[in-house]
Design a protein around this nucleic acid. Structure first.
Length: 533
RNA sequence: GGCCCCUUCGACUAGCGGUUAGGUCACCACCCUUUCAAGGUGGCGGCACGAGUUCGAAUCUCGUAGGGGUCACCA
C-alpha cells in the first residue's frame, strides 16, 4: 500500500508543540513505509485566521527536519493545499449530498439555535441540534436558498443504533447515534466546517492513515457517516494520546499552563533534534529501549503499535535534559558552535577567532542545557572588563600573594598548553607548600569574576597569556582600588596581613611590573569597585 | 451531567500469563574533583481498588474509583 499521512493545522497563532508532535508521528509513519507526508492548511475559520501563522508553521517543520512532501508553497499533485482555495470541491460534494438526501439545508438563525439550547438546558435535556429543519420539503429549501436566505447545510444522521469504527490502537469504538446531532457541513458563509472539509480533503489527497490527536475520537463517527454518505472507503484511524500539562490534573496541553510555542523553545536554545527526540518519547518508545535516538533511527523502526495510550505529561525538565545530551555528546562541536554563534555574538563574541570560539564552546557545553546557556555563561571570554562578584572579590583578596606570584610566573611561561600550565600550577603549589584550592580559587575569580567556572587550567589555556596577565593585573588593582573606602591611603598600602611573612620579597619584586599593567587594565569604571557601590 | 477514551515509581516508559516488575528524568547519598558542571556507583520510589478466569496474573474479563476528552455555523 502506498501510505499517505497528513498534518492539518489551523493557522491561528504560534506554531504549537502539539502540531509538531502529531506531525512527527505522521512523518515517521509515512517515511517508514516510503509514503508521502502531506501538509494541509485548515483555514476555514476566517475569524481566527492569522496570516503569519501559515509560514511560521511551515518553517517549524523545516526547522525540525520533518518538512512535508506536499503542501502550500511546496506543491504536489493534489493541491491546492489551503482549504480556503478548495471551496469549489466542497460545494461539489455538498451538492451531491443534497441531491442524495444525505444532507439538507437548515435555516435556523443563531438566535433560534441559542434559544433551542437554552430550552434544552432548562429541561435538563441533552444539548444539540434537534433536527427541526430536517423535514422542510426540498423544494421549499431550494426556494428559500435561491431567495438568498442564510442557511447552513447539515448532515442527516441516524437517530438510533451506533456508529462504529476501528481505531488502530484502541480497537472498535462505537458511539450511540443519539449523540450525533446532524452536524453542520457548510457554514452560512459558504465555508465548510472541519468535519466536512477534512473528509473531502483526506479523500482527495489520497490519505490512507488519519493519525491525529485523541480529542477527535468522539467526532470520528461523524466522519464515518460522511464517508458512507459519500460512498468512500474509510482510511485507517489512529488517535494519538493528548499531550498534557504538568498540573495536578494533567489536562490537555494548553498555552495558559505551559509554553506551547515551538518558536519559543527555539529561542530558548532548544535544538530541533532534541525537541524531536523528546516528542518521540511521548507515548512511543524504541523497541530496544534507547531514549536518545535520531529522527532517521526512529523512522527506520517506527511502528504505531508501540504507542502507549496514557496522556504523557510534557515535562520541561526532561526536554532540557535531552537537549543537554545533544549539546554535549550527540552533536559535533563544530555544529554546536555554529548554532551557538548568533547567541554568542550577542554575548560579546566579535566573530573573529574561530578556534577560540570552538574552545569556549567545548569547555562550556558540559555546563549548559541549552544553546543560550552557553552564551549566558560565556561573557568573560569576550571581555576583560567583566563584573566581579562579591564572592570572587573575597577569593581574590585572600589570594593576592598567589596572584602576584602567578602573574610573574605566567609572564615567563613560553607555552600555554595544558601540561605546561598544570606543571606551573603544581610547581607553585609545591614550592609554597600550600593547598591547590588556595591558588586556584583566586585565579578562577580573577580570570572570570565568578567562583563557578571551568577548571583553571582550561581557562588559562583558552584565554592565553595576554588575557590571563591582564586579568590578574586587573583583579589585583581592583583590590587596591577597593581599599580607600576603609583606608584612604595610597596604592602601596595593600593588606599585609593576608601575606605570609616569607613571601614579602617575592611580592615586592613583582610589584613594579604588576603596577604597570594594573594602570592599563584596572579600574574599569564605577560599579565594579565594591559590594556597596 | 450524557457519551467516549485512558490508568505500571513524582514524570516519561519497558512489560503483551510465570520477571527479585527493567530503564530514563527528577530527587538523595557516595566516589571522582580545583569551584560549578559533566562523569561513575548506589539508593528512594510503582502495577488505582475489588471480584472473576487460570496451576499461575502488571498482563485476560467484569465492576468500582480516579483522570482525561467531547458534546459549536472552532478546529
Amino acid at each position: 500500500m502506498n501510505v499517505v499521512t497528513r498534518i492539518a493545522p489551523s493557522p491561528t497563532g504560534d506554531p504549537h508543540v502539539g502540531t509538531a508532535y502529531v506531525g512527527l508521528f505522521n512523518y515517521a509513519f509515512a517515511k517508514r513505509h516510503g509514503g508521502r507526508f502531506v501538509f494541509r492548511l485548515e483555514d476555514t475559520d476566517r475569524e481566527r485566521y492569522d496570516a503569519a501563522s501559515e509560514l511560521r508553521i511551515l518553517e517549524m517543520f523545516e526547522w525540525l527536519g520533518i518538512a512535508p512532501d506536499e503542501g502550500p508553497g511546496v506543491g504536489g499533485p493534489n493541491g491546492p493545499y489551503r482549504q480556503s482555495e478548495r471551496l469549489d470541491l466542497y460545494r461539489e460534494h455538498a451538492d451531491r449530498l443534497l441531491a442524495s438526501g444525505g444532507a439538507y439545508r437548515a435555516f435556523e438563525s443563531e438566535e433560534e439555535l441559542a434559544a433551542m439550547r437554552a430550552d434544552q438546558q432548562r429541561r435538563g435535556q441533552p444539548l444539540g441540534y434537534d433536527g427541526r429543519g430536517r423535514d422542510v420539503p426540498v423544494p421549499e429549501q431550494e426556494r428559500r436558498a435561491a431567495a438568498g436566505e442564510p442557511h447552513v447545510i447539515r448532515l442527516r444522521t441516524p437517530d438510533d443504533g451506533d456508529t462504529a469504527f476501528v481505531d488502530l490502537l484502541r480497537g472498535q469504538i462505537a458511539i450511540p447515534n443519539a449523540e450525533i446531532k446532524d452536524p453542520v457541513l457548510v457554514k452560512s458563509d459558504g465555508y465548510p466546517t472541519y468535519h466536512f472539509a477534512n473528509v473531502v480533503d483526506d479523500r482527495a489527497m489520497e490519505v490512507t492513515h488519519v493519525m491525529r490527536a485523541e480529542e477527535w475520537v468522539t467526532s470520528t463517527p461523524i466522519h464515518v457517516l460522511l464517508y458512507r454518505a459519500l460512498e468512500w472507503e474509510l482510511p485507517v484511524f489512529i488517535h494519538l494520546p493528548l499531550l498534557r500539562n504538568p498540573d495536578a490534573n494533567k489536562t490537555k496541553i494548553s498555552k495558559r499552563k505551559l509554553d506551547t510555542s515551538v518558536d519559543s523553545y527555539r529561542r530558548q536554545g532548544i535544538l530541533p533534534e532534541a525537541l524531536l527526540n523528546f516528542l518521540a518519547t511521548m507515548g512511543w518508545s524504541m523497541p530496544d529501549g534507547r531514549e536518545i535516538f535520531t529522527l532517521d533511527e526512529m523512522v527506520a523502526v517506527f511502528d504505531p503499535e508501540r504507542i502507549s495510550l496514557g496522556g504523557p505529561v510534557f515535562d520541561l525538565r526532561k526536554l532540557r535534559h535531552v537537549n543537554a545530551r545533544y549539546l554535549r555528546e550527540i552533536l559535533p562541536l563544530e555544529e554546536i558552535a555554529d548554532r551557538a554563534e548568533p547567541a554568542l555574538k550577542e554575548a560579546g563574541y566579535d566573530g573573529d577567532d574561530e578556534d577560540y570560539l570552538l574552545d569556549v564552546v567545548d569547555v562550556l557545553r558540559p555546563r549548559a542545557e541549552t544553546v543560550n546557556d552557553i552564551a549566558e555563561q560565556s561573557g568573560y571570554f569576550w571581555t576583560d572588563d567583566f563584573a566581579i562578584s562579591d564572592e570572587a572579590r573575597k577569593r581574590i583578596a585572600a589570594g593576592q600573594q598567589a596572584l602576584e606570584d602567578l602573574e610573574r610566573a605566567f609572564s615567563m611561561l613560553d607555552f600555554f598548553d595544558e601540561d605546561a600550565v598544570d606543571d606551573l600550577l603544581d610547581d607553585y603549589v609545591r614550592s609554597r607548600e600550600i593547598k591547590k584550592p588556595q591558588v586556584l580559587m583566586p585565579m578562577r575569580a580573577a580570570l572570570t569574576g565568578t567562583t563557578q567556572a571551568p577548571s583553571v587550567t582550561d581557562l588559562v589555556v583558552i584565554l592565553g597569556r595576554e588575557r590571563v596577565l591582564r586579568r590578574i593585573g586587573r583583579a589585583l588593582s581592583e583590590m587596591t582600588a577597593a581599599l580607600p573606602d576603609d583606608r584612604p591611603t595610597s596604592e602601596e598600602n595593600r593588606p599585609e596581613e593576608n601575606r605570609p611573612e616569607e613571601n614579602v620579597d617575592a611580592a615586592a619584586t613583582s610589584g613594579a611590573e604588576s603596577d604597570a599593567k594594573r594602570s592599563g587594565s584596572g579600574r574599569s569604571g564605577p560599579g565594579r569597585s565594591g559590594p556597596d557601590s
